[in-house]
Computed example of a mutant assay.
Amino acid sequence: MNKKLLQKLAFILAVIFLISFFVIYLTIDLDNIKKINIFKWEYLLFALGSLTIGLILDGTRLVHLVRVTDQQISPLEAMQVVFSNYFLALLTPGATGGAIAQVMFLKKAGVPVGKATVVVLVRTILSILFLITTIPFVLHYDNSLIPSLSKNTIYLFSSTLVILAIISVLLMRTKYPEYFLVFFTKSLNRSLKRKIYFFYKEIKTATFLFFNKPLCIFRVYLESGLSLLFIYAVVPILFYGLDETINMFVTMGRMIILNLLLYFAPTPGGAGIAEGGFVMLFKPLLPIGTVGILAIVWRIMVEYLPFIIGAYFSIKTFGPDIVARISKKAIKIKNKGVSDI
């Protein structure tokens, strides 16, 4: 196997091991660890079933999103795109390789690079948009997340967040963002200005899909939401396995908050941030000493299992030098543009 890939895998495994060790070490309580012994192991199968449904929905929404661009991919090709994202996102800084891997697989499936780039971008935008639009419901059922704010303030904040997201999409159909960019970038150097305009062009192109085929995009939006909810449902299912009485709305809401933050995490695959955020959010809801173990089980199921499958598809399709190729393409995109993929 390629030496660089082995080094990357060894590094990421070491990081995962260290994070898992410290999370468990800092949260374990020997007096309450016996709670793990009553875990109903059949709930692991239920959790895997929920994860499987979520991943399948992730693949079907990609198939339907590609159709919006008048292209076609098979369900198998869609799943390769989904799993490759897990693999390369965990091996590259800031998860940059995940997006490039998706474009590469879509290109191999016959989707032109320009359309593939838009598909990957819209796929991410719709996921984030779904999470943002659920924030009002999350804070309604769990105002203890921000106890210092009144419910009216929370509703105002949440509604403003959703409205701003919608307005941002609508503004992309106008020239106003370009006026703002001209003013904002006039004092920046040429290289940085070019990157900002390039990113703006991608976003603007992506928003055209929202208006050209709104019903199709709305369908993909709903599939995005269902996919995410089934994947997040792994956590409450694990809690039920401990025979815990939990509030489903609160648990799912906190998973939404955590995963929304992970979209902007600077570490590969959100490593460290995901585990720490999980402990912080769910420590008040679980028996002392079990939250760290469940955080690791959750990450193994929803991140590392898809990572292994993604490694198989990526290496089989593009060879063991896939990481080096992704890195080179990232540099080309940074210096020239997406057409170099």
Rank of each mutant, 00 (worst) to 15 (best):
T160K: 00
D58W: 01
G114C: 01
L9I: 13
A116Y: 03
F180W: 13
T60W: 12
T92H: 00
A47K: 01
L209G: 06
V23D: 01
V234C: 05
T160S: 15
K332Y: 12
G272A: 11
Q102Y: 09
Y312C: 05
I322Q: 06
V235Q: 06
G277H: 07
P236H: 06
I196A: 06
A330L: 14
I322R: 10
A78C: 05
V103C: 01
I309H: 08
L229M: 13
R61F: 02
H140W: 15
A271C: 09
T69F: 12
G225N: 02
E223L: 15
F21I: 12
T60I: 15
L131Q: 12
G269R: 11
A274S: 14
M79K: 10
V15G: 03
L305H: 00
G337I: 10
L229D: 05
F230Q: 11
N247K: 09
D70T: 04
K35C: 01
I196N: 08
A10I: 09
L238W: 05
V68H: 01
G94D: 08
R299F: 07
I28L: 08
T134P: 00
Q72V: 07
E178H: 11
F264W: 10
H64V: 02
R254K: 15
L285M: 15
Y221S: 09
G110S: 09
I341P: 07
A206M: 09
S158M: 03
L260E: 03
K175E: 12
K151Q: 12
L281K: 06
L90N: 15
F22Y: 14
T317Y: 11
Y312T: 07
T267E: 11
A14E: 00
Y221C: 05
G98M: 00
I217D: 09
K115W: 03
P147Q: 06
F137G: 02
N335Y: 10
F307K: 07
R194W: 01
L6P: 03
T69N: 00
F199S: 10
L139P: 06
P147H: 01
E178V: 12
I315N: 07
I315R: 09
P147D: 01
S20D: 13
T60H: 06
L305S: 05
T153E: 10
K151A: 07
G253K: 07
A14K: 02
Y232R: 03
K213G: 02
P287M: 06
M280K: 14
F130E: 04
I33T: 10
L88E: 00
